[in-house]
């Protein structure tokens, strides 16, 4: 599936580039470049340099406090060497993957279900449900964390329907934090997928209906393939949003006993700000930046695809 996505993204990327070269190639636009200069300088000063510096810090022995907080130095690959031997880092990387996979699948399925149900419902219901889902998405992570913490620990509403001491958060921490993330992000996914659903040409669906195809079959074989670019965009954005969702897990479990929810952002914080090892914490952050960059790159590639409706109209 991933290979298919990448292949299709690169294919359409080529098309876009060819199109640009043949029709829109502007030549060197000096005034345009001058106008872009302030923005470029800002980008350089506020993004490229800090990220570059953070990468450099990842290769030093800097600490938050103590002698090495003032007189730190470059330590070569010592931190990387440690990273390789750090069993907690590998565990953390695995937990990050589990959290992301759970979140992406959960958010997409719930978001899609909401989008489909809303497409078929009355306008007032659509507006109401849409508003509620979006409010859940707009809530700050602290609120989401507190709501889910109260909901899933002893005495919470969930404990009334679960057996044992009802302390779901402490017995299934990864499942609960993932559900909390799904709950808070599904509204965002619903927005994206709803617009994708609306872009599915009704004539295609009608044609399929006239052929006597079952509804579920139309959804799987017609709607989903047409929505593929939207779904890819949704998956990548949800991945990036979840990867950055440090606050939710930190507030709910702070990593948890046995480090059961110690995803990479939480572990990086722990090294930098609990153990005061800023250098090693920065290196863990660097790993996170690399992972995010890969997903961001995939997102940009996917976003460059031409809209489905245009391609259909062109007979592509």
């Amino acid at each position: 599936m991933n290979d298919a996505v990448v292949a299709s993204a690169s294919e359409s990327g080529k098309k876009v580039r060819l199109h640009k070269r043949s029709a829109d190639h502007p030549g060197v636009d000096i005034p345009g470049m001058i106008l872009l200069l302030p923005a470029s300088l800002l980008l350089l000063a506020l993004f490229v340099l800090p990220v570059g510096y953070a990468f450099y810090l990842g290769f030093t022995n800097i600490t938050l406090i103590g002698p090495a907080s003032v007189h730190f130095h470059f330590t070569g690959i010592a931190n990387v060497h440690r990273l390789g031997r750090d069993t907690l880092f590998w565990k953390s990387l695995w937990l990050t993957a589990v959290f992301l996979a759970g979140s992406v699948v959960g958010v997409t399925v719930v978001g899609m279900a909401l989008a489909v149900v809303m497409q078929r419902s009355a306008a007032w219901l659509r507006a109401g449900v849409g508003a509620v889902a979006i409010v859940a998405w707009m809530l700050p992570p602290i609120t989401v964390a507190v709501v889910w913490y109260a909901f899933t620990t002893s005495g919470g509403t969930l404990s009334l329907v679960t057996p044992g001491d009802g302390d779901s958060l402490n017995h299934f921490p990864m499942l609960i934090v993932t559900l909390a993330n799904v709950w808070s992000t599904a509204g965002f996914s619903m927005l994206i997928l709803s617009s994708g659903l609306r872009a599915v040409p009704s004539e295609v669906i009608e044609a399929a209906l006239m052929e006597g195809t079952a509804r579920w079959r139309i959804f799987l074989s017609v709607t989903l393939p047409i929505m593929r670019p939207t779904i890819v965009t949704n998956v990548l954005l949800v991945t990036l949003l979840s990867l950055a969702n440090f606050a939710l897990i930190y507030i709910m479990t702070a990593g948890g006993t046995d480090n059961s929810t110690d995803i990479l952002p939480v572990y990086s914080y722990q090294q930098g700000f609990v153990f005061k090892k800023l250098g090693y914490g920065a290196l863990l952050g660097d790993v996170l930046v690399i992972i995010s960059t890969v997903f961001a790159y995939l997102y940009v590639r996917a976003a460059r695809q031409r809209p489905v409706r245009t391609r259909l109209a062109d007979g592509v």
């Binding site: 002893s154 005495g155 001491d165 402490n170 507030i251 702070a254």
Partner: peptide, 9 residues
């Protein structure tokens, strides 16, 4: 004590 109290922030 119960976990939700022991593991409370």
């Amino acid at each position: 004590a119960k976990l939700s109290d022991l593991f409370s922030p």
